[in-house]
Amino acid sequence: MHQGFVGGSAALRVRVAGGVLLVTHLAFVAWFTLRPLDVPWVVPPNLHPLAGIRADLALGGQEAARRLGAGLALLAPLGFLLPMVHGRLHASPLGSLIRTSAAGALISLGIALLQTGVPGQVLDIDSLLLNTAGVALAHVAVVPAARHWIRRGTERHRRTAARQEESAQGLTPTIPRVGVAP
């Protein structure tokens, strides 16, 4: 029974590759965000939503773009890696976006909670917001187009296979009906 999952050996390779890339990316994120920092002082945690983003925007120009871009980009690959590992071609776009964004938010929250025990790292609620927004933006930018492209290719493959099957059946020799002899 067709469940909307990508099937076949090519799909399995895509899902496995997605899983390997997902684990690799999460290992990099863990190393990058959970390593101790040697700093002369530690700023207090930011528990006020959007306060850090406003402060970054107040810097203006390239520095603001760099800081906000880094927050958006850190977990952004999860926006397409999570659906890639899941492997559903026929999924509700809104449902897929919500599931992927929620998973990104939970992973970002887990990182933020783990950072509280790492020297030099402080909790910043804005990083959670930026990370989640990055996951959602990457999902919206990549996943619908990728699903459409894969569905189109899968449908083309099915039509080609059906035509080949029909032509193979047409070449099968037929035996003429013979009536009963008197």
Rank of each mutant, 00 (worst) to 15 (best):
A51T: 04
H25R: 01
V178W: 08
G61T: 08
R54K: 06
I53T: 04
I175V: 15
V20K: 02
T172Q: 12
S127A: 10
V143Q: 07
G179M: 14
E63N: 10
L59M: 09
V180K: 10
L47R: 11
Q164E: 14
G117P: 02
V135R: 00
G8F: 05
V43H: 15
A141E: 03
E155G: 14
A11I: 03
L82S: 06
L74N: 00
G52D: 05
V122I: 15
Q169W: 13
V140T: 08
V135P: 00
Q3H: 15
A55T: 06
L128Y: 01
S108L: 03
V23S: 06
L171H: 06
I107W: 05
R152C: 09
H25M: 04
A73Y: 00
G52C: 02
R99N: 10
E166T: 13
R163I: 08
F5W: 12
G95F: 11
V135S: 01
V23M: 02
A91S: 14
V142W: 12
F32C: 04
V85Y: 05
E165T: 15
L123H: 03
V135N: 00
G134V: 02
D56F: 09
G71K: 01
Q115E: 09
P77S: 05
V42W: 10
R177I: 13
W41Q: 12
G19A: 03
D124I: 00
R66G: 08
S9K: 07
P45K: 02
L109M: 12
H148P: 07
R147F: 11
T174H: 14
W41C: 08
L94S: 11
L114C: 05
T160N: 14
G153N: 13
Q3D: 14
R99I: 04
R151N: 08
L68F: 05
T116E: 06
D124R: 04
V135Q: 04
Q3F: 13
F5Q: 11
V42C: 13
T100R: 04
A11Y: 02
L97F: 10
T33F: 07
A103H: 07
V143N: 05
V180S: 13
I107L: 12
L72I: 07
G69F: 06
V180I: 13
A105E: 03
V140I: 09
L137M: 12
L59C: 04
R151P: 08
V6Y: 07
L137I: 04
A102C: 10
P93S: 12
V20R: 00
T132N: 06
P49F: 00
S92G: 13
